[in-house]
Design a protein around this nucleic acid. Structure first.
Lengths: 103, 103
DNA sequence: CGCTAACGTTAGCGATGACTGACAGAGTGC
DNA sequence: GCACTCTGTCAGTCATCGCTAACGTTAGCG
């Protein structure tokens, strides 16, 4: 066991350039699924699937308002990712500490 | 412009858990390909392919010594990744550009 | 209720990716 | 030269991914 499951999903979600584009789009502003889809030239379906992946990974949050669903990037996710990157690069001391915290 | 090509490759490389494990392994210590492969239960071939992906993305550096090839994580890559993440979330790229134009 | 708008979900397809096994190459020592 | 070690490369297989098109669902309006 090296990476917690949610982090695993985040890294996988970030691998797709279009998902990073979507993430940028909802970084500052909360946007509806339709608005997001309109920004790209792929089908609404594709964007919806990307949003599902992003949401399940914890990178974005979803809020329903009537028939619309509003998405926004989660700032805590950024911190988790940065911590994960530091954990990869930094030394064995930090890794040992992380192991202790897991249990 | 969305993502520079090297960053794109880094994110894709990080998506694979095994590659992150390899990255952790060579974060502090420079290791030979064989040593790295011995840590996992997949074939040497698979590890070699992972090392190629990591090297081409710029996440690790390669140094030859006799028949051995020594790998080590590039610390500059960490900085580039953190900058990229900040750029996604806070729109720091645009703000930095504005700061440059001010001076 | 019927109708529309805004979404998500499913099935299926083509492309990409991670893996194994067999082979090739480069360096070292005899 | 020959043998041995360490490693990358190639071919092929199976799973996964991103995409489109058609269908299902939920909320609001008349």
């Amino acid at each position: 066991m090296t990476s917690p499951a949610p982090l695993d999903d985040m890294f996988r979600a970030l691998a797709e350039p279009r998902r990073r584009d979507i993430l940028r789009l909802v970084a500052d502003t909360e946007r509806a699924a339709g608005e997001i889809a309109a920004e790209f030239e792929v089908s609404r379906t594709a964007v919806s699937q990307h949003l599902t992946v992003l949401r399940e990974s914890g990178l974005i949050s979803e809020r329903r308002e009537g028939t619309r669903r509003l998405y926004r990037a989660r700032r805590e996710a950024l911190r988790e990712l940065q911590k994960a990157l530091d954990g990869i690069w930094s030394g064995a001391l930090d890794r040992a500490k992380a192991l202790v915290e897991e249990s």
